Simulated scan of single mutants.
Amino acid sequence: MKKLLVIGMGKVGSLVGSLLQKRFEVTGVDKSAPAVALPFRIVVGDVTHTDFLDSLFAGQDAVVSCMPYNLNLPIAQAAYRSGIHYFDLTEDVGTTAAIREMAKDSKGVMAPQCGLAPGFIGIVGADLAKKFTRLRDIELRVGALPRYPNGLMGYSFTWSPAGVVNEYINDAEVIHNGTRKMVPSLEGIEMINIEGQEFEAFSTSGGLGTMCETFEGRVDTLNYKTIRYPGHCSLMRFMLYELILKEKRELIEQILTEAKPPVQQDVVYVYAVVEGWKDDHLEREEFYRAYHPVQIDGQHWRAISWTTAASIASVVEMVADGSLPDSGFIKQEDIRLNNFLNTSNGQFFKEV
């Protein structure tokens, strides 16, 4: 793997390209030229045009899509036609299912869901699960939050508003009482105390990726919940269901983006708990980290940006190194945490 495309030069995509250009020949693609200079070549064009996409992929070895969930599938289809590796950050279940079907006879890797959740949290959860003889529960939690919240919602959209709304509306897959099932998002609310600070966590769609399939028959409970400041879930339910804005996605995305712009000081909480038996002893393993903004090459990067970008860049590195398969579908829970952390971009997670 030498040449690769990074599509979408937004908050995350521009950093993905900057991280990967240190090793690969990167070409960035966006509908308009980035406002700031980037250390790799930029091609301007509309990736919703099939002919433009197909022409882009000629001579490339891989493509990394950093586009909103609803634009990923055509890019994946173009990668499949071209026989090159494909990576994305989607949390969308339907998009992932379609990509997985293509992966059955793909010439390259088809690796969606390479962000934080799904993505890194699944790698962490599966690593903890390996320590047990027999499993009982796997509970995974991630929150990307303003470090200094204000207002009733206690939130800012440092991540794609379209992706956030999508995961709030779609049902979430879980394993409950040993049975694999779907539950409504914005339900199952619980309180969490992290270092003296109270948070709430609730079900959202897509965070487990393919883990329910992988662990079905092996656990009594498997779930993923999003961490927010208290009161956030109730307000989102009010907007989506009492005001019926769930049927006007573009409108609510616009409202939320204008009301809660990104902050520079954010924090990403990653928390995983696994319970089960080691031989005959019931035990519990935990993983907790709080990730904050960092300086990369002299530039300030929000926690959500660098954790997401470093996650997908690490998976790209592992495919290039041969520590992951070079064709077919990659489940995040099949990625070994130590291998992930030992990539040049996985090192960012070790330094915390």
Rank of each mutant, 00 (worst) to 15 (best):
K2P: 03
K3I: 11
V16G: 03
L20R: 05
Q21M: 08
R23E: 13
D30L: 07
K31A: 10
K31R: 15
A37T: 06
V47T: 09
D54R: 15
S55D: 13
A58Y: 15
V63T: 02
S65N: 00
Y69W: 11
N70P: 11
P74Q: 08
A79N: 01
R81C: 08
I84S: 05
F87H: 00
L89R: 09
T96E: 10
A98L: 09
M102C: 15
C114A: 07
L116T: 11
A117P: 01
P118Q: 04
F120C: 06
I121H: 00
A126M: 02
G143S: 07
P146E: 00
M153V: 06
F157S: 00
T158W: 05
S160N: 12
N166P: 06
Y168D: 04
N177E: 14
P184V: 04
E190Q: 13
M191R: 14
G196Q: 06
Q197E: 13
E198K: 14
S203D: 11
S203K: 05
T204K: 09
G207I: 00
R237N: 10
L240D: 00
Y241H: 13
Y271E: 06
Y271Q: 10
D280R: 14
V294H: 05
Q299S: 14
V315Y: 00
L324K: 08
D326T: 15
S327E: 06
F329N: 03
I330M: 04
K331A: 15
F340A: 05
L341N: 01
N345M: 14
F348V: 09
